[in-house]
């Protein structure tokens, strides 16, 4: 087994125990999608696209009082070391489901009865924590699509490597470490919308890891906000004279 933490307390990629991998967020990267975003987190490269609200196909899935939310997490065949069959695996189907359930509380679906919103995540290159990175990008794409939301959703994992609790596991740390705890939150409403645990932790370690994951989410949330503001408003300060000049509803 590789040494995951060296004598200086540094990890395989040189990070401290509580440090995120380098990341990059972009919004509005696709032309056809109603909303889109792109995230790089470590080696993860993930494209998120939102179509909707739109008409429901097939029609029988229509809900009379709210919008139907669908989510698809998919990995391109070249995204992993050994080529992946393009057909959706059981893992991808499970992740699609928990991502949908993590996003749903943030969306005001009652505002769009009899319509559908499709959230598509395409993993172009995968590293540890692709579901968390995907979720962070999906929330940006939903905001970009201009869908009414109670809050953004932001996700980050913490885990355990040889007894040490660390933030944001990479691929090798995920595979060779002891535990992985992905967490997603709605940061303003203070609610957890995704939580999984894969591996063994003591109750105390769980608490430490959970708090560390929340800390990671906070950093990423600030970046989410900054990305949206700079995309839509550039560097300009809010105008102090009246902006809405047209007829009002």
């Amino acid at each position: 087994m590789t040494t995951l933490i060296n004598e200086q307390g540094l990890r395989v990629d040189g990070r401290r125990f509580d440090q995120l991998r380098p990341f990059k967020l972009e919004v509005g990267v696709l032309r056809n999608a109603d909303g889109s975003a792109y995230i790089e987190m470590g080696k993860n490269k993930i494209m998120a696209a939102v179509y909707g609200p739109k008409e429901v196909h097939p029609k029988h899935q229509t809900l009379p009082d709210r919008c139907l939310l669908r989510c698809r997490y998919h990995m391109s065949p070249f995204s992993v070391d050994t080529r992946k069959n393009p057909a959706p695996s059981r893992r991808e189907i499970e992740i699609s489901k928990i991502l949908r359930e993590a996003l749903e509380p943030a969306l005001i679906l009652g505002d769009y009865p009899r319509t559908a919103i499709d959230v598509y995540l395409e993993v172009l290159q995968s590293d540890g924590g692709s579901r968390c990175a995907g979720l962070t990008a999906a929330a940006l794409a939903l905001a970009d699509a201009g869908i009414n939301m109670r809050d953004l959703v932001v996700a980050c994992a913490a885990g355990k490597l040889g007894g040490q609790i660390v933030l944001d596991l990479s691929d090798v740390e995920d595979k060779e470490g002891d535990a992985d705890l992905p967490v997603a939150i709605m940061p303003n409403l203070n609610q957890v919308t995704l939580l999984q645990l894969d591996g063994m932790m003591t109750g105390e370690e769980f608490k430490t890891a959970f708090e560390m994951a929340l800390q990671g989410c906070k950093t990423l949330y600030d970046a989410q906000k900054a990305t949206l503001i700079s995309k839509y408003f550039g560097k300009a300060e809010p105008p102090q004279q009246e902006v809405q000049e047209g007829p009002e509803e």
């Binding site: 905001a143 699509a145 201009g146 869908i147 009414n148 939301m149 839509y232 105008p239 809405q244």
Partner: peptide, 21 residues
Amino acid sequence: TRVGLAEISRGEVRVIPLSGV
């Protein structure tokens, strides 16, 4: 609930959104 410009005036709060269907 949206990306936009929030306005607080005359006791009312609203957001002028910049995207959406």
